[in-house]
Design a protein around this nucleic acid. Structure first.
Lengths: 396, 396
DNA sequence: GAATCTAAATTTAGAGTCTATATAAATCAA
DNA sequence: TTGATTTATATAGACTCTAAATTTAGATTC
């Protein structure tokens, strides 16, 4: 079975410290008595553990409180030290990268981004990510030693151990370029994960799916993928491909902006362009998905027909996932999320014709931070599980 | 967070006892030295824990061994007491029920079954199950006090807590009739689970999917459903409906015997019947799926066409599940498993046209015990997680 | 201002667990 | 019988928890 070492008395302290830290990290300032009630530990243990956690840097102690109960010895007041360290949430997309720097409670302290051409090489992309990371750290005035982990979202299948499982030159270069560089240069644990999975993590943590443990997030933007969560756990499948629907006939031209643009070209974009308002007609460059959405909103019949078709296809995808997975909620996120909002009524109507028990459907409100927020959560998960192994104290 | 009690020193013993019991239950007779190597515990702890486990009834001690090393003090020899208790695995199908009685290693010690009409009421069905259970116990000569848990597979969505989530009269009656009766009459924990999920558990444990943790089992018999396993864990979805595909258009007439028979009737069963060999033509009653399989095997073109169509539809279902879930293996089980074996080459060929990365596909070799075996595993899982809470010793 | 009250912090004693080390036991070999 | 060898058992020490006694720091009362 498992080759783990034996359970010795120090394990008890670890377990209890972990529990206490969990309580503190999800609440505010707590007194000893409050911690006794929350954890079930005795007073002696609570104080011993808190002293340990203070020595480790995970907890800070405030001046004794004289708030409510004006009688008796003042209580010691403990608080999770959310500035004991920071994590990075990095979204590497096809045309831009977004970097979030967050404290240990997950509050964003800095944000940076870089845009680039989709044709940009892996090496250049790595540089852009690096620049954005440096900017975020610099803006927040945080040294790289304070960063405890970096979560990175990529548009490729990733297994449970964080390995990219697409065997092509681009991703191999990207992996060695970014992952090992961040690790060797800064000493950070770099945690890769599929971007749609991170989107699910993000929605579950701070999005529309708070409190919903069985969840599908459709990530529709430059590409189309989904993140699947069952009982609060992300699914990966055998090769990290769970939720990746690149080969599914059903999703051709659904959700991803390239597909939408292609369909528009096929179905007579002339009509769309003609009916689009001046500001859109003036745009240089080729037909884009944004143009189609805008034209439809402006009343263009062809564009509306395209979106109608897309809504039906999307409903079909949701119906399939809903039947196979039985999620409580499906969240549509990514670049098309805001545009998809107007399609929701039709999607829901179509959905009802495909299945008798459709899941609830909504659009994301996390905007373009959806993957980054999930990446932050992913990094925090790592930090939390390794918290008591890390020694934060020796910082001058 | 969790309202669990504090970690106290006895927890260490629990953890180490659990680890040691896990090693013993998956191996044979072990010496103290062997357990030291396997668990990482010290000799003193190993013996203390073993003494505890012997007192609790989980472990038996044999006479000191004088086998291999003929030198030194003879070692104490410990073995998992697989007859310390028993579990039931109960499959309640549409037309029959199968009951397996197994020891704590999962070895079947008795088997019993009952057939009935699909129209049989919930109350009568409960009686049949009860009779089969009584027969199994009687044959093995085991009292109901020795049964530690009963796993029950039902053809309905079941949530993670074992609640049937179909709100109709039949299942309500069935639930109160069987579950509460087994509990109140015998005092057994009754653990309901979806039959397809149990099939997945069974294949993962003792079937074609040993060692494969990302898995889909198609259960095709009286009905068509699937059990989904990701990283060794069963998926349930928000309402126990994960893998239940009753509303999926794609699966209409795929796999379930009623559907096959219906298609056969529609496509001109006269031809089938005419070409069927005498022994089949002599069969009384209506067209059945078995008849179609037999006729196809005999060379009947219409029947072969029907099966060809079924194979393609099955491939499409597998392709969809394979793309969405990315399992390493898809196992086809249930009543049609043996017949499906001959369709495998075509299914695999079709599959390759639907997806570039198809999962491996095979048929079950567990036969009609597929759900029962999974039910045994389900019950054993319960017993193993609650092992150290159970006191087996006081048995006169 | 001193005594009293109160709730919390701290200290102390006791029990359970582990490891490490010392001692005893059981068998084979000489 | 004695010695070597391996295992079992016993003892001492460390770490952890709980429970109960003691101390502490401020508010209240006289």
């Amino acid at each position: 079975m498992t080759k783990t070492s034996a359970a010795t008395p120090p394990l008890l302290r670890r377990v209890n410290a972990g529990k206490l830290l969990g309580v503190l990290s999800s609440t505010g300032v707590m007194t000893g008595t409050g911690l006794i009630e929350a954890t079930g530990l005795t007073r002696a243990t609570v104080h011993a553990v808190c002293n340990d956690l203070i020595a480790m840097g995970w907890v800070v102690e405030h001046d004794p409180g004289r708030d409510d109960s004006m009688v008796g010895r003042p209580s010691r007041r403990f608080e999770f030290n959310s500035h004991a360290g920071y994590v990075l949430g990095i979204d590497v997309g096809a045309a831009k990268t977004t970097v979030l720097l967050a404290d240990l409670r997950g509050e964003t302290v800095a944000k940076a981004g870089r845009s680039f051409q989709p044709s940009t090489s892996a090496a250049e992309r790595t540089s852009h990510v690096h620049d954005a990371v440096a900017e975020a750290l610099s803006v927040a005035g945080i040294t790289d030693a304070s960063v405890l982990a970096a979560g990175v979202g990529v548009a490729a299948p990733v297994d449970r151990d964080g390995n990219i499982l697409v065997d092509d030159e681009f991703w191999r270069q990207f992996d060695t370029g970014l992952t090992s560089r961040l690790t060797s240069l800064h000493g950070w644990p770099v945690l890769l994960e599929n971007d749609a999975n991170l989107a699910a993590l993000g929605e579950h943590w701070r999005g529309e799916a708070r409190g919903v443990d069985d969840l599908v997030v459709l990530l529709a933007g430059e590409r189309f993928g989904s993140g699947l969560m069952d009982s609060g756990r992300l699914l990966h499948g055998s090769r990290g491909g769970a939720g990746e629907m690149v080969y599914l006939k059903l999703v051709e031209g659904v959700g991803d902006t390239h597909g939408i643009a292609r369909i528009a070209r096929e179905q007579g974009i002339a009509a769309v362009a003609a009916s689009a308002p001046t500001r859109l007609r003036e745009l240089p460059g080729p037909v884009t998905a944004e143009l189609v959405f805008a034209a439809a909103a402006d009343g263009d019949k062809v564009a509306q027909g395209i979106l109608h078709d897309i809504a039906t296809r999307t409903a079909r995808v949701i119906a399939t996932l809903g039947i196979v997975f039985n999620p409580a909620l499906v969240v549509i996120g990514g670049a098309v999320a805001s545009a998809a909002r107007s399609l929701l009524p039709q999607i829901e109507a179509d959905l009802a014709t495909f299945t008798a028990t459709p899941p609830r459907v909504t659009t994301s409100s996390l905007g373009d931070a959806i993957v980054g927020v999930g990446a932050v959560r992913h990094a925090l998960n790592y930090v939390e599980t390794h918290a008591l192994d890390l020694d934060l104290a020796p910082r001058p």
